[in-house]
Design a protein around this nucleic acid. Structure first.
Length: 560
RNA sequence: UGGUCCAUGGUGUAAUUGGUAACACACCGGUUUUUGGUACCGACAUUCAAGGUUCGAGUCCUUGUGGACCAACCA
């Protein structure tokens, strides 16, 4: 990562400004505050890299805080998954904290607010309260319970906590201003009754604090100096500050909320609700399905933490609306994998090729370079024999000279092997080519140094020896949605755009060196793309995921 | 009809805080190559619009236009 000459984003400018106006650098503290109601996705990666990146940049602590104030949606499974993903991304948090750690403190503070006449118990239904709120262009009206006495409020609130009421019977509201132009300031709810066990506090509580009442106070309790969230919380800032006003003391750091635009990505959705829907309706196999934009899905698909971090840094942070093109993500993973992935040969769409002048039954083990860009990567042996598979699309009976691959009468080099010449082919009744016959030049062996071996032929093909190849399951993924912005249509549901062909499972033939490959090992199938070993692999059958294809200028040429 | 925020090439960001538009991706063209990969070279915007302030404006002001967000006992 090039941390050096990078220009600052607006968040970093804010911090620099605070520092230059006297804020002590050692008081800087950040946090990443997910709600454990789903798995982390690529959008979170931006927030994670922002907050933890700031921690690294200023050498400041960063808390991992779970915003667990709604037991109806939250689960331990998600807590575990989130920790796993942040850790995998390569970041370490200073403290693992939970909003639920502060339930008692929050309660005590709420009691203070009541005593100060800043909060009251409302006993109306959700519907009535909503109606009284008015609209953005129309003032709200006060609740008839707004002027309950402090004593009455205290008693009611205490009884709410003790479990004397059913859900919905009472709520605690902050007493602010029902005519504010900011809807959130119209006496927002602080507590609601929820008779649901919490994944950490179990049944200790039956009243739960709302987000607004919790978040700023949690930041304050942890002495977080800068609290960054997405733009949809911009309106909440006024309330965040109001709540802080009720509890802060001068000697402590007063947290500052600032907002940045969430990242949108083309051809996918990043909303936990929608991702959950994909899982529940079994459009995908789970949160870690390789087609999912989740961190765990990307990891399973073969993405590296390094690539994701680079990607997040590349797209940066700003305040404007955006749709990040997937090609940027694909570039990041190719860039990383190109450096580290060992090259191997695999044929995914095979056609038989017979070398008629190669001795029957003979085999030889050729040297193959593991990574041409890495001098230390070394060589491995790949078996060669009379009968091989090559890709169907690498042969044509006839073709123009733009086609560098094999055609009748034409020559091509078999990667790491010999130069061959196609002589004839045989077809089945439907006219499909089922076998290609060719001859080889025995003196043209790669690396042999002979004059023949140095000859230049335009095309080079990958191949596998049929006798030695390992038949494997290969999972090819396409984008999950056919539309560029599936959830930006006012009149259509994003589920309408699900790509029915997002997964294709085929049998491919890989070179025998892959026999010992382990789960998550990643390779470049030369001339095809990057593939890793899926966790579904067994000793009997290897299962590969396609991570991403190689850049394919030939495909572009063909389209013209 | 109220309020808040935003507007730089196809995409995402930058611009020493008023000093003459930069980086990456994509696209197009080329060189190299035993991966049509990689690497390398080149081309590609005068900053939503109109006024204004200024020697000088992407940066400041005004007015428009366009977009996002705000009325969950969600976060």
């Amino acid at each position: 990562m090039s941390e050096e000459e990078k220009s600052l984003n607006f968040i970093e400018h804010i911090i620099e400004d605070d520092l230059s106006s006297g804020f002590p650098k050692d008081k800087l503290r950040f946090r990443f505050p997910p709600e454990p109601n789903g798995y982390l996705h690529i959008g979170h990666a931006s927030s994670i890299c922002l907050n933890f990146g700031l921690g690294l940049r200023y050498n400041s602590p960063v808390n991992l805080r779970f915003d667990d104030t709604n037991p109806a949606k939250e689960e331990q499974e998600y807590v575990d998954a989130i920790k796993r993903d942040v850790d995998w991304l390569g970041f370490s948090w200073d403290a693992e904290v939970y909003a639920s750690d502060y339930f008692q403190q929050l309660y005590d503070w709420a009691v203070e607010l009541i005593k100060n006449g800043k909060a009251y118990v409302d006993s109306q239904s959700a519907e009535v309260i909503a109606t009284q709120k008015g609209t953005p262009t129309q003032d709200g009206e006060n609740s008839p319970f707004r002027d309950r006495t402090v004593e009455e409020n205290l008693a009611l609130f205490s009884e709410m906590k003790e479990g004397k009421y059913k859900e919905g019977e009472h709520v605690l509201r902050a007493k602010i201003d029902m005519t504010s132009s900011n809807m959130l300031m119209r006496d927002p709810l602080m507590y609601r009754i929820l008779h649901k066990p919490h994944h950490r506090t179990n049944t200790d509580w039956c009243i739960y604090p709302m987000y607004d009442w919790t978040h700023g106070e949690s930041d304050y309790l942890e002495q977080v100096s800068h609290s960054f969230c997405t733009l949809e919380f911009a309106m909440h800032r006024e309330l965040y500050d109001w709540f802080l006003d009720q509890v802060t003391v001068d000697t402590k750091v007063r947290p500052k909320q600032r907002e940045f635009a969430r990242r949108n990505f083309s051809h996918t959705v990043v909303s936990k609700r929608k991702l959950l829907q994909l899982v529940e309706e079994e459009v995908v196999t789970g949160w870690d399905d390789p087609r999912m934009p989740t961190i765990s899905g990307l990891r399973r698909k073969g993405y590296t933490a390094n690539a994701i971090r680079n990607f997040a840094n590349t797209i940066g942070i700003a305040k404007r609306e955006n749709v990040v093109d997937v090609s940027l993500l694909e570039f990041s993973i190719r860039e990383d994998l190109n450096k580290i992935a060992p090259r191997v040969m695999a044929v995914l769409n095979p056609v038989k090729l017979v070398i008629t002048n190669y001795p029957d039954g003979e085999e030889e083990w050729l040297d193959a370079e593991n990574n041409p860009g890495d001098d230390n990567a070394g060589y491995r042996k790949v078996p060669f024999s009379k009968e091989l598979y090559i890709e169907k699309e690498d042969f044509k009976e006839e073709a123009n000279k733009k086609f560098f691959r094999l055609k009748l009468g034409g020559e091509v080099r078999l990667k790491n092997g010999y130069i061959i010449k196609a002589e004839s082919c045989t077809k089945d009744a439907e006219g499909n080519i089922i076998e290609i016959q060719c001859t080889y030049d025995p003196k043209s062996k790669s690396g042999s140094g002979t004059e023949e071996s140095l000859r230049k032929v335009k095309g080079t093909l990958h191949w596998v020896s049929i006798k030695h190849a390992i038949a494997s399951e290969v999972r090819l993924y396409d984008r999950l949605f056919n539309d560029e912005t599936p959830d930006q249509h006012k009149d259509k549901d994003f589920m309408e755009f699900v790509n029915p062909e997002s997964l294709k499972v085929i049998t491919g033939f890989v070179e025998p060196s892959l026999k010992t490959a382990k789960v998550e090992d990643i390779f470049q199938f030369q001339r095809i793309g990057y593939f890793n070993i899926d966790k579904d692999s067994t000793a009997e059958k290897l299962v590969f995921n396609k991570t991403v294809g190689l850049r394919d200028t030939w495909a572009k040429l063909q389209q013209k």
